[in-house]
Design a binder for these strands. Structure first.
Lengths: 242, 242
DNA sequence: GGCAACAATAATTTATATATTTCTTGGAAA
DNA sequence: TTTCCAAGAAATATATAAATTATTGTTGCC
């Protein structure tokens, strides 16, 4: 019984309910940009695409609304959350504020174990190629996963689950912006050096340096996306959201 | 059948959806403690109590899970989020960090309009009795509403919707703790003086003072609740959560 | 006589309810 | 103690009801 249950969970159903499965799939499609910002999410389209019925879909859409990836207009259905320059600026500003706070607290509570985790996370990230192809950009899921682990480890010692969850939400929302303009942003920077510099500052107990490097890291990412005319081209009323 | 259903919908819920209505009612019952922490939320009980069907209920429960007031165990239904000393400490710590940040940013972006809003909020709160009865405590919903407005106004000038939403979530979760031990905490403090002191510091542009007063305000509230043996009495494993 | 605006109806779509299936859990028997 | 069966609860699917939007037709005004 233990073995069968464990096997089933491990092999057949990573997420056991239909609602969780479709949540994961929808989330991936939203983050990758396959479901483009502002698009109406019609039930008929969703049930056909994801091969499930309305009930688990509504459940997944409600969770995604809480994550800020989907917008729910009362009596008018669901929409992919829109993007705007203003939102990108605000999200980045908030992330810089909150992660600076979390990083300082992480460092204030520093332990050898945490420092070793950070060293490992940076090492693994550094030796993984960002793009699967060298001539043009092709997203490497393993790099994305390790990148996420690195940033989560940075703030992972702050001692607040809720603060980390909030940082995770901001990261998700900003990840979507990053993916939408990833091709053009590809060759211009050496993010690996930036990650290493942050880690070095943390291990040297230089909190001010670490925070400055981290915020610059996020700000530069935002600046590159903001310069991308293509993404925001279609939007007329840039800052407004209903 | 059709007519009665239409009448009920028309009279009880003029414009909103069933899901939003039951969300509001459930939220109120969770925050007030009428639905006690750890309690299993069985569908049958919920449908009978709130006179609605499973679908809008699942929708409401999913939203409340995102708010941290309900816990969802896969394939095992929904439970009222449990409470613990450790969680109270962590939530308070996080709220102090994040609201300090938000208050500093609010003050850095200060405008005469915002200062006037704050003055008004404090004035209205101060002239509203906290308890409906003077001999014993009886919750005054108007005071609670104005209290919330005051604290929201404090951080309302920070320029980040997402940061304010996060503060609101933390406030909700902590409000539940406060309500659970409100009777004993009633006579001991003069919270009105504390609010006025915070406002004075803000209007005097004394950011450090304002932040110190605000964090002390939250910390003292938590300390009073932590001393309450009754609330946490039943819990064996204090800090653990599944 | 033609064009525009408003209203009404129909179609599409969301929201709710009920029924069915699947999963978990507890109890009994081997 | 372990396994199987039954009962109950949760998750999903389908059907029904309600609401919004779009299109068409009619009427009024230019």
């Amino acid at each position: 019984m233990v073995t069968t249950s464990a096997l089933r969970l491990a092999s057949v159903t990573p997420s056991s309910t239909q609602a969780s499965t479709v949540y994961d799939r929808l989330r991936e499609d939203l983050l990758s940009g396959r479901l483009e910002p502002g698009r109406k999410l019609q039930m008929r389209f969703l049930t056909e695409t994801y091969q499930t019925s309305q009930t688990p879909l509504r459940e997944a859409l409600n969770r995604l609304t809480a994550d800020g990836l989907v917008e729910c207009r009362e009596q008018r259905g669901f929409y992919v959350a829109d993007i705007s320059r203003n939102e990108l600026i605000e999200l980045t500003k908030t992330r810089c504020w909150v992660e600076s706070l979390a990083l300082r607290e992480s460092m204030a509570a520093s332990t050898p174990q945490w420092e070793e985790l950070l060293l490992l996370a940076q090492h693994r990230l550094a030796r993984t190629p960002r793009s699967l192809k060298s001539e043009h950009f092709e997203d490497n899921p393993e790099w994305e996963r390790l990148h996420r682990v690195f940033h989560r480890t940075l703030i992972g010692n702050c001692g607040s689950q809720s603060l980390m969850a909030f940082c995770g939400q901001l990261a998700d929302q900003l990840y979507r912006y990053r993916r939408l303009s990833i091709q053009r942003a590809f060759p211009s920077r050496h993010v690996s050096d930036e990650h290493q510099a942050i880690m070095t500052a943390v291990l040297s107990k230089e909190a001010d340096d670490a925070v400055a490097l981290l915020t610059t890291h996020y700000q530069q990412t935002a600046d590159v996306i903001l310069q991308d005319q293509q993404i925001f081209r279609e939007l007329q009323n840039d800052g407004e959201r209903a």
